[in-house]
Design a binder for these strands. Structure first.
Lengths: 241, 241
DNA sequence: ACGTTCCCAAATGTCATACAATTGATCCGA
DNA sequence: TCGGATCAATTGTATGACATTTGGGAACGT
């Protein structure tokens, strides 16, 4: 972590890269303390503000946390599923909103990914998973909730389905894909009829999952994907008028 | 973006949050220029180093880019698939390495996710996709390459398969899952026999994709997943001795 | 000997200022 | 008109100082 810094790129970026590399290859272990800012500044031959900029870059990525006081300093942060997921959601959301990805493409990816946990979910789902999904269906049946609340419940329903696969890595990956879609889904106005149809398909999915019937879950998901794209198209057509 | 800053949290973090929120909700559009550091410092009532720490936090997340010179400044960055993917790979890699995720769980998630592009890949694969995969098989057949090179080619083969689905959102999501596994895969020593068996399964997958036979691709993937877990178990058992 | 209080040292957080480096724009001259 | 020197704006870096937080230890009293 001590080779010379080139004057080409920003020093703070190079220093951040060095420290990140040290964390990734295990030279700096979780919860270990980095040298103080003054020591880092001297060892890299730069000023303290430059070191601080480097540390802020790492803090922004949740790689380190800082603590003030006598025994304070910068510590290697244990990456949690929660932090990683939140990060991925905002990144995915921005990616979709900034690159005018078509609703169809995003929707296609989202439902395709969800297919990947069908087999595992059917094999491992427990009563509490079914209960969580059922609770969301109750919410969705309430016709007085807003479109945003309906969408949020939709997302929660699908996340509960994903969690039923009982694989945290899979949950983490899929949470990003599913939640990143929500802003796009929120653009859709849900009529009473479309809500009823979505609810019916959700119900069908839950029933199939309860029966551990992978083929039926697959059908329900495909059906839901097709209907989602369909009403998105209708909304867009209506907006064009 | 101008409400008062509380003295509780670090000022640079609060400022970064404000600007990030402005970007996410669209108040700051892609490629638009932020006020100069001096102007931001004055408008937030803080010093320039503090503003710079905030900007570095945003730069670390690829939300902005900075440019020196007369017409320079900080600009809202268009999030690219490439940047988002690289980010996700390092995050996923750290997540796996720091939380002692079992090889089985990670492997299960990885292959489950790959299943999601079978249908699309079979429907849309073009000759160039097949050629890219074939090229990797040639590399893997070379018995003189290192284990690391073999793993890298393995990853490239699967990425080519994913790309055949012709959905950038899907490619982005799966690239993270597939590439994040590479460090774990690198721990495995590939004997001549296991390489031959992996190669045979890869060949089988490619043949099925060429024929657009979804069921056969599915079988090949399942077979590959099972074999990967099996040799990982053997390697671990060997290490235990 | 024990507990409480107070003070201090170490570290991060913030500020002010200055200078260096870069880069597009402008002006001027041939 | 074109080319080049100059300029001004902006970010990058350095220096030094002070504020704030926080744990630990010394001093003190009981």
């Amino acid at each position: 972590m001590k080779t010379n810094l080139t004057p080409k790129r920003e020093l703070s970026a190079q220093i951040a890269d060095r420290i990140r590399a040290a964390i990734i290859d295990g030279a700096l272990k979780v919860d270990s303390r980095l040298p103080s800012e003054a020591e880092l500044a001297e060892s890299f031959g730069v000023s303290r503000p430059t070191v601080r900029e480097a540390l802020k870059r790492l803090a922004a990525k949740n790689l380190i946390r800082t603590q003030r006081g006598a025994t304070g300093g910068a510590f290697v942060n244990r990456m949690t599923y929660r932090e990683a997921r939140d990060d991925q959601v905002t990144t995915s959301t921005l990616l979709l909103s900034m690159n005018d990805v078509s609703f169809e493409a995003a929707c296609e990816a989202r439902f395709a990914l969800e297919v990947s946990c069908i087999a595992l979910a059917c094999a491992r789902r427990e009563d509490e998973d079914l209960a969580a999904m059922e609770a969301e269906l109750v919410r969705q049946a309430d016709e007085t909730i807003t479109d945003e609340a309906f969408c949020a419940s939709d997302v929660a329903f699908h996340r509960a389905f994903v969690d039923a696969a009982k694989n945290p890595v899979l949950s983490y990956q899929l949470a990003g894909a599913v939640e990143a879609m929500q802003p796009l889904m929120n653009l859709i106005t849900y009529t009473g009829r479309s809500r009823a149809r979505i609810l019916r398909r959700h119900r069908r999915l839950l029933t199939a999952l309860t029966a551990r019937d992978t083929a039926a879950v697959h059908d329900a998901l495909d059906d839901l994907a097709a209907y989602t794209v369909k009403i998105a198209g209708e909304v867009e057509a209506a907006k064009a008028r």
